[in-house]
Design a protein around this nucleic acid. Structure first.
Lengths: 151, 151
DNA sequence: CTGATATCATTTGCGTACGAATGAATTTCA
DNA sequence: TGAAATTCATTCGTACGCAAATGATATCAG
């Protein structure tokens, strides 16, 4: 091989130090998240994933303050406010002031909210299954373990 | 054990069929994505991850139409428009009409955009590393493989 | 050639997501 | 006790992300 051929190869080759967007975690993470949200929306049309998360967590822990619930579902104060506002508009949660601590806004599940949640849980499991359907059972376990570490 | 004690246990026990939000892919995926965005923002303050992705992809493929670029970076027409608008406002891209097809808006990288990108790529690699830092080298390979399957 | 269809882009509306600023209430501690 | 710090909630501004509607252009089929 001549020196010129080497040079040509260097120029034409996919450079090793090049930045490959498609291989960056952030990009793939964003796409995986998008895919999940799309699957969610195809099965549950009346709630978004964050709304569902807040509802499910509220059923789990019972009445809590808005901010506390936000912390539990990884939403900041501004975000959880909007989510709770919309759940309240649907009649799924009730809001009330805390008597001792007048700063706190207590959120509780309504009967309607609990009923909706119970119906949705089966669908939520389908959503999880479909999201993980490209993986084998063994891969699912690995993936969830690693994803939890990264999150 | 009396019947009443059994009843009490049923009511108080963590039910096996209960829905555990913390274990659902969607929820963990959302948190992992949030963590990555936070790491990104801590290292690159003048661009968002989608803006960076568009810029990197544009450098990769050269001049393209706005919609085509959107497809390449997984953004719909409405989303890529906003991203390109902001990149243009920063002087990182130029826009021009396609002469043959008057519908198309062609996007190209400016010298400034290329320069900014080159400086940012080292940081982007740090971001990827920090995002994956909870994993061992072997786990990183597994995780990227599985995540790509899910995305 | 022309009408139906498809593509590209824009706009609007809604829902996260987060930083920063503000105000009210509570807690800490000097 | 009383001032400082903290906590809870709200609001504003910016930026994705997507559905749906609209308008302009291009392509295709009869």
């Amino acid at each position: 091989m001549t020196g010129e051929e080497n040079l040509l190869k260097l120029v034409e080759a996919e450079p090793d130090e090049s930045y490959r967007l498609q291989e960056q975690v952030g990009f793939i993470l964003r796409k995986a998240h998008q895919r999940h949200v799309a699957i969610f929306a195809s099965k549950i049309t009346d709630l978004t994933p964050p709304q569902f998360a807040a509802l499910a967590k509220l059923a789990d822990v019972g009445e809590t303050s808005q901010n506390q619930l936000g912390t539990l579902v990884a939403m900041d104060a501004a975000t959880i406010k909007g989510v709770i506002d919309r759940l309240k508009a649907r009649g799924y949660v009730d809001l009330s002031k805390h008597e001792q601590d007048k700063r706190r806004l207590m959120v509780s599940l309504t009967a309607e909210g609990r009923q909706a949640l119970e119906k949705l849980i089966a669908l939520a499991q389908e959503i999880t299954e479909e999201t993980l359907s490209p993986l084998s059972a063994k891969e699912v376990q690995q993936f969830l373990r690693l994803l939890a570490k990264v999150a």
